[in-house]
Simulated assay, not measured.
Amino acid sequence: MTEAQLSTMDGSRGEITVYRWPNPDATHRVLLVHGYGEHLGRYDHVAAALHANGAEIIGPDHLGHGRSAGERVLVHSFDDVLADLRAVADRAGADLPVVLVGHSMGGMIAARYAQLHGAGLTSVVLSGPVLGSWAPIALADGEIPDEPLDVSTLSRDPAVGERYAADPLIWHGPFKRETLRALGRCLDEINAGPRLTPPTLWLHGEDDHLVPIGPSRAGIDRIRGDRFEQIAYPGARHEIFNETNNAAVLADVTTFVTRTLGG
């Protein structure tokens, strides 16, 4: 697989960086959505697994994240993020079936995107998604601690946390109050929104302390459609794509995608 090709485009609130892992023999396109404070450059191995399964992969660094413009991790409204994601998808074209894959906050974004644009999606994969409710949102109305993330909560593989802590493109500071409020509004919209119409796979680590499985399960149960599958991984922490069993997780993803494509 070739390395990601980076380009830029005008987003809702400034220039955003777009990643594309091309595949001249692609049978489908994956729209990949990263989580809070991180960037899509951390997903090369995910893209490699999807690419080997016949995908071209595209996705942006969200505004205020990674290589994209904007104050770090400041999101006034996730409508802006959703509009940017739709613009990236539109620029890629309508020549291939589209699969949506989102992790963590990216899973929340993907769920809302699927509610709004589900007719254009072949299937949806939600990895450790922020759904239902999320405890940090309550910090928006009080004191927001400036404490670094406990990187041991990411994965049982300590190297994952070490790389995370050393990555200059990752935000290592406190939450922004406006972003937490925007997260809360987006969850309210998802909870009140329609059920998901595309086939959907929900994946979660049972030992996820950053986005606990209970609230996420309650959230997905509220919006899941008739074509729904779920897998919980015993002992796995938050970043299941970076867990010690990540090969099995990615195999579960590609098996689901192939099945929903009719392969």
Rank of each mutant, 00 (worst) to 15 (best):
A138K: 13
T258G: 09
D226R: 09
H62K: 05
R86L: 14
L187T: 06
A4C: 13
W171H: 15
L187F: 11
N23A: 15
L31K: 00
V33H: 01
D10C: 02
H45E: 15
S123Y: 00
L139E: 03
R20H: 05
E206C: 13
A138S: 13
D44M: 01
G54N: 11
R181P: 14
E143S: 15
A94T: 15
D25L: 10
W202F: 14
F256E: 04
R227Y: 07
L201M: 14
A92D: 05
G184W: 04
G102K: 00
V46H: 04
A89Q: 06
P158M: 04
G14C: 05
S216H: 08
R67C: 01
G70L: 03
Y233S: 12
H45I: 08
I170D: 00
D61E: 02
R67D: 03
L210Q: 09
M9C: 04
V124L: 12
D157P: 06
E189V: 09
S155Y: 02
R112F: 03
L183T: 15
D188C: 10
P198I: 01
R72Y: 06
E229T: 12
P174H: 00
R42W: 10
P168W: 00
L74P: 08
A89Y: 07
Y113C: 02
R222P: 03
L63H: 13
T255K: 10
V99E: 01
R91C: 11
P136V: 05
Y233A: 11
M105T: 04
D79S: 12
L126I: 07
E162T: 08
Q230A: 14
L261C: 08
L40E: 05
G106I: 01
P194Q: 07
R67F: 00
F175Y: 04
H51P: 07
G59V: 02
P194G: 12
G106L: 01
H76E: 15
P199D: 05
P129Y: 03
A26H: 05
L63D: 09
A92I: 13
L40G: 01
G214M: 15
S104F: 01
E189W: 10
P212V: 09
A110E: 03
V81I: 15
D207L: 12
P129N: 05
V249S: 10
G193R: 04
R67A: 06
D208A: 10
R156N: 14
S216A: 15
G54Q: 09
A247Q: 14
H65A: 04
G193N: 10
A165R: 03
A251P: 13
R29H: 08
